[in-house]
Amino acid sequence: MIEISNVSKSYNKGKVKAVDDLSLVVKPGEIFGFLGPNGAGKTTTIKMIVGLLKPDSGKIAVNGLDTQTDALRCKALTTYVPDYPAVYERLTGLEYLNFIGDVYGVPKSDRLARIEKWLEVFELGGAVSNPIQSYSHGMKQKIVLMAALLPAPEVMVMDEPMVGLDPRAAFQLKELMREHCDQGQTLFFSTHIMEVAEKLCDRIGIINKGRLVACGTMAELKQMDRAETSLEDIFLELTEK
């Protein structure tokens, strides 16, 4: 579960408000889609959830633990996929996965079973012992996703995880996301692909200029304005203001 309470974050000594008094709750077993135009505050919010940025005010809790005061325990429950696949390119795929397994303390049997499963799903079996430097953008994205899935975390936070994936891998990822949350775990992700958000998410939040302008299930969002028929229309309407 993720609880964000009255969180604000600004840059340039308060001149640019990236996130403005944001509050929302993502429940266990829920896939939460976070939408917004470029520069709306999505990545800043995500970075505050995973502890990369410190909120100026407000509180964020993961499974009831404060991300600031209980940072280490929160990190042990959370994995993060950034908006670009930045990984240790000089390591092999397997060395990178082992590194993640070692720091999250994944037992060998679980580690082996999961890695073999994801290698098959993402078709990376032939490349896992090669340096990540030799991977394509999509392959790098897949290894980052595998690393995020490896600890079977309580909470997964992903920043535009579909970017760079081929249609098959994107489909597999959506299946995995659903499977992950069906086991009672939480998933928070940002995306620009309305169709994915519409079909996959249990609830959707739309952020614009740092403020949450809408939040709810797809049905609830549609109820906000009866004239709007698709998420894309709702998004355009809400973020135009």
Binding site: L94, N98, G101, D102, V103, Y104, G105, P107, K108, R111, L112, I115, E116, L119, G125, G126, A127, V128, S129, N130, P131, Q133, S134
Partner: peptide, 25 residues
């Protein structure tokens, strides 16, 4: 920037040997 990599998957035994175990941060 090119690195040529072999495209041969690891055998189950190789994989098991190369997977480390436990928490050793």
């Amino acid at each position: 920037g090119e690195i040529s990599g072999r495209k041969k998957p690891l055998t189950a035994r190789e994989m098991s040997q190369r997977i480390s175990s436990g928490r050793r941060p």
